[in-house]
Design a protein around this nucleic acid. Structure first.
Lengths: 188, 188
DNA sequence: TTTGCAAACTAACAATCGTTAGTTAGTACA
DNA sequence: TGTACTAACTAACGATTGTTAGTTTGCAAA
C-alpha cells in the first residue's frame, strides 16, 4: 500500500468515526506516524479526500443501475439485482460507504451540486424500475418517488450495522433486504 | 417567541442546512440580528443547543413506544400505531428531526453515550413488537434486529423529503409507510 | 561521485472558532 | 429617584484549523 493509499484509508477510518469535521490533518498524520504538512506531499487538500470517496461511490452506483437496466427483464428481477449490486458496493468498503452516506453534505458548493445531481439521477432510474413494476402488474400502485426513497433508506441502513465478521454475507443481506422491500413483514 | 426560543429555532434551521459544525455562533447571531457574545445571555453553550434537541426528541420517541405497548393489542396494530406516532413526532419539527438524525454524533462523549443508550432502548422495544408479531403468526420469521433497523431507516427517511406544504399529511405518510413495511411492494 | 527527486521535516501564517470579561443602555419596581 | 435586572455591546483570548514556505534526508540513476 502506497503512502497515498494509506492516507486515504486512514482518513476514511477517521471520518467514519468522527465525521468529516472530526478529521483533522494533524490527527490523520499522527495516526500514520508523520507530521501534518507531510500529507500534502501526497494529496492536494482535505476536501479532495472527501470528493474522491463520494464521487467514486456515486459512479459505482450509477454503473450498477445501468447494468441492471441493460440485462434483466422483469421489474421484480431487476429490483432484486439492483439490491444485490447496491449492497455489494456498500459492503465492499464500509468506511467509504459510511462517509458517502453521512458526509457528502460537506462537499463544497459546486461539487455538492454535482453530487446531488448524480444521486438524483440514480434515484430516477430506480423509480423507473418501480414504475415498470407497477405497469407490469407486479407492484402495488405506490408513489414511485416515495417508494424509491424509502427503498434506498432501507438498503443504506446496512452501513449502520453490517459487520464483515458477522454471520451474513453481503449476498445474504441482499436477499433479506429484497424480501423486506418486496413482500414486507406480513405473512399471507 | 422569546429570544431564547428564537435562538433555538434559528439554530435548528442553520444546523439542518449546514450541520452542527456549520453552525457558528457568529452566523447564528447575525441571522438574529445581534452579536455573537450576546447569545450567551440566553444559552449556556453551543453544545447545549444540540443536546436539548436530541434528548427532547429521544424522550418523545420513548413515550410513544411506551404508549403503544400500553394500549394496542396485536402486533400489526401496534406497529401501525407506532409508525403513526413516529412520523407525527418527526413531522412536528422537521428541522429538529433532521438534526436529531444527522448531528447526534457530535454530542460530547458522555451525552453521546446516554443518547445511544436511549436510542438502543427504543430499538429494543420495537424489536419486541416484531418478535410478538412473529410469535402471533402475523409476521414472517425475520431477524428482529435486522427488521427493526431497516424499518426505522424507512421511517426516518421522511425527514429527507417531507414538506408540510405538500399534498400528504403526516397521517397519510404514516399509512403509506405502514403499508410499505408490512406488505411490501409486491401485489398478491 | 554527482544529480535529481520523493518524502519527510520545522516553523509559521492567516483565519476562524467558542467563549469570557467588562461595560452600557433601557426598563420595571421599590 | 434609586436600585436591580435583562440583554445588548466591544474587545479580546486561547485554541485549533487547513495550509504554505523553506529546508533536510535518503536513495536511485547518471
Amino acid at each position: 500500500m502506497t503512502r497515498k493509499e494509506e492516507i486515504r484509508h486512514k482518513a476514511l477510518e477517521i471520518m467514519k468515526k468522527h465525521g468529516f469535521n472530526g478529521l483533522t490533518m494533524r490527527l490523520l498524520a499522527k495516526e500514520i506516524g508523520i507530521e501534518a504538512p507531510s500529507i500534502y506531499n501526497h494529496i492536494a487538500s482535505k476536501d479532495e479526500l472527501l470528493e474522491i470517496v463520494c464521487f467514486d461511490l456515486a459512479s459505482r452506483f450509477e454503473s450498477a443501475v445501468l447494468e441492471v437496466n441493460d440485462i434483466y427483464f422483469n421489474a421484480p428481477e431487476k429490483l432484486f439485482m439492483l439490491v444485490k449490486l447496491h449492497i455489494e458496493i456498500l459492503c465492499d468498503d464500509l468506511n467509504a460507504s459510511s462517509v458517502f452516506m453521512h458526509d457528502w453534505r460537506y462537499l463544497k458548493d459546486l461539487k455538492k451540486k454535482v453530487f446531488i445531481q448524480q444521486r438524483n439521477n440514480y434515484e430516477l432510474q430506480i423509480r423507473e424500475i418501480i414504475r415498470l413494476g407497477i405497469e407490469e402488474g407486479f407492484f402495488n400502485e405506490v408513489d414511485t418517488r416515495f417508494a424509491t426513497i424509502t427503498l434506498l433508506s432501507s438498503l443504506n441502513s446496512v452501513v449502520e450495522w453490517y459487520k464483515p465478521s458477522g454471520a451474513l454475507s453481503p449476498e445474504q443481506v441482499a436477499v433479506q433486504l429484497n424480501q423486506f422491500v418486496q413482500t414486507g413483514l406480513r405473512k399471507h
